[in-house]
Design a protein around this nucleic acid. Sequence first.
DNA 1: AGATAGTTTGACAATAACGTTAAACAACTA
DNA 2: TAGTTGTTTAACGTTATTGTCAAACTATCT
Lengths: 200, 200
Amino acid sequence: MTLNTETEQKIVASAEKLFYRKGKAGTSMQDIADDAGINRTLLNYYFRSKDQLFEAVFRNAMASFVPNLAAMLNSEMSFEDYVPRMIETVIDAMLENPQIPIFVLQELSSNPERMPQIIKEMGIDSTVAERKMKGEQWKELGNQPDPRQFMLNLLSLCIFPFAARPVVTEILYNGDNDAYIEAMKQRKQLLPLLLKKFMI
Amino acid sequence: MTLNTETEQKIVASAEKLFYRKGKAGTSMQDIADDAGINRTLLNYYFRSKDQLFEAVFRNAMASFVPNLAAMLNSEMSFEDYVPRMIETVIDAMLENPQIPIFVLQELSSNPERMPQIIKEMGIDSTVAERKMKGEQWKELGNQPDPRQFMLNLLSLCIFPFAARPVVTEILYNGDNDAYIEAMKQRKQLLPLLLKKFMI
DNA sequence: AGATAGTTTGACAATAACGTTAAACAACTA
DNA sequence: TAGTTGTTTAACGTTATTGTCAAACTATCT
């Protein structure tokens, strides 16, 4: 079995699309096969079982944004310089794949016991993170009581608007999708300004 | 059929517990019946079908926090007074039922076409919201470019930390659940201070 | 006691889903 | 051409899941 055949790519593309929207249990192997326009048995041929196919998709999704997070936590960069860059990277990633946050959060909420192993596999050493957060590069925060709260605020402001996309679009932007997207892009400039205020 | 029999309550309780964690497709009627310690057929006796049982749970979940939102959007209160109260209310609601946000967001992400009707049923008139947000009570925002962004920030900071609970607990608090809960409670005081900075 | 309304149960039928297998097919190689 | 490897297909068996139905049970009222 050679990797990355055309059919294999079609399978992954359709699996992502459907798993993202309907979740693992809400998506059948037949659904994926139909969407990809191939025979269902091929899914088992390339990915042994539904579980393994899902795992592939899930790890893919995690890998699409965890490195950014890890890079920030581990980076030696000046904090003030790094935050805006981090924000832009994360928001751009979300704009490309708006469904990922809710997909990942739902899976982790279903199976929180997977967290510890996932963290290790993704190369996040939480002790490193903690040490960095307490280190000198955080001095700029001034009287900010807890650097963890700062991190939490940063992630909340970046990610939640995408996780809540349908609600936000409908309630705040009257269902106007373009207006929603435009607002998300604006946040790339807006958030660094706001977060700077947190540091004073 | 009298409402609110003991069995009916047991059904709803178990259904909430399981739907919240595993979603609609991930939970079988048998799972719910087992958890409630009753015969599966009773689920159909009281709630006709799985769809209707899920609908009951979903509407319950929505009703547990939408009124707060609507109240804020429609309230005549002084904005500066209301924000802290709003924050405390929302966070308290989340502390009671931390699983609700991810559950609701996942369902709305699966079926975004339901949003318009849901909004109407929940009594949110988005035109009213928009009008209020542009009204004079928002003047305090000063040079804040878009009141919608402010709302989005407020909700993000309140809700996301709960939607991302497993990740946050594991990465930021080394898996220490008590520390996580404590941090969430702290946010009831922290967030009003931060949001006040947005208004300047 | 006996009828009646409401509740609970076990059994059934229909469908959907998953994974396996053996056969068909394609393309390349000796 | 014949053979080998890798890919695709249809068919099958098994299990899970859902909703219905009629029978059993309970309690209450006459």
